[in-house]
Structures are given as C-alpha cells and as structure tokens.
C-alpha cells in the first residue's frame, strides 16, 4: 500500500517519536508524508544564541533517492537566520541538500547538519548575492542549482531553468 517514500518516512517518524530528536531540534508538525516542520536552535555559545528557527521539509515520491526540499520558514512572523548560506527567503545553500545528498541521509541528519552549519558561523551576514537571488528565486529551493565557489562565504546561485 504505502509507497517506498512514505514507508521510509514512517520509519523515520517512529524513530523520532521513540528516541526523540537531538538536543536543540524538535518536531513541530508532521501530519502527512509531504511536509514536516521542525524547530531548530543552536545550543551553547554561538551568534544565534537563544534564537529558534523553523525548518520546513517537503518530500516528493522519490524520497529518499531524491533529496527533500528544505528551507527555513519565513512566513507568519518567522525569519530565516542571518547566515552566509541562508537567503532571506529561507532557501539554504548546503551541499547535502543538493548534489551531496545521499539516500542514506535522513531528516534528522539534515537537521543536525544545518544546526552545526549555524553553530560554526562567526559573523551574521546574508549571502552576497542575496537580493539578486531572492528577486527571482523559484518557490522550491530544489530548482536552484547552487554553485559552490570554494570559499565558504561566497556563493553564486543560478536557476536550473536558465
């Protein structure tokens, strides 16, 4: 009955419910196998101390072969963290969400990676091309092909349809 993606997600959810989320991450909403919401908070000393962000996962029928669409929620008064890899529309430039995605990764693994991405940040700033990107960004961050420029804080993004 259930497809591979929903069975896999069901297993992940049961594991979350029985073993709990890592510190600083908690499940906010998972009413179906299409969209889940988590809150994420950086523990310990960091520039984001005391700030709680909401992370949205969207899954297609190819999950886990294809990556989930992950972004920070920027509606309902919520904001994306100010980070060199996070655009103001909530889109995240992280390799594991794009070409480094692997089907053995899980929702929790993504949360933990993004948490440590925030934790390692020394200075709050937006990506250099934030305005240009946000102006034309597709609704789904998976439609963006992020280019990694080598240096950590310098990304350029292009759209797949270009």
């Amino acid at each position: 009955m259930a497809s591979i993606s929903s069975r896999r997600l069901a297993k992940e959810l049961r594991e979350i419910q029985s073993e709990g989320c890592p510190v600083g991450i908690s499940l906010l909403e998972a009413n179906d196998f299409a969209k889940w919401l988590f809150t994420i908070e950086v523990m310990g000393d960091s520039v984001y101390q005391g700030e709680v962000y909401t992370l949205q996962f969207r899954f297609d029928s190819h999950y886990p072969i294809s990556s989930p669409a992950v972004q920070f929620v920027v509606t309902d008064g919520k904001e994306a963290p100010i980070h060199p890899h996070v655009y103001s529309n909530g889109h995240i430039c992280a390799s594991i969400l794009g070409n480094e995605w692997s089907p053995v990764l899980s929702v929790i693994a993504v949360c933990v990676t993004l948490q440590s991405m925030l934790a390692s940040c020394k200075k709050k700033e937006r990506p250099t091309d934030n305005d240009r990107y946000v102006r034309n960004a597709p609704e789904n961050p998976k439609k963006t092909l992020f280019h990694y420029d080598g240096e950590h804080y310098n990304f350029k993004s292009t759209y797949l349809q270009d």
């Binding site: 069901a10 297993k11 959810l13």
Partner: peptide, 11 residues
Amino acid sequence: NFLDADVPDPT
C-alpha cells in the same frame, strides 16, 4: 493516524 499502517521498524 497516518502512521497506523503496519510499517515494522527496529523500534
């Protein structure tokens, strides 16, 4: 309830 489907897992 959407989890009611019998999806056996290690837990």
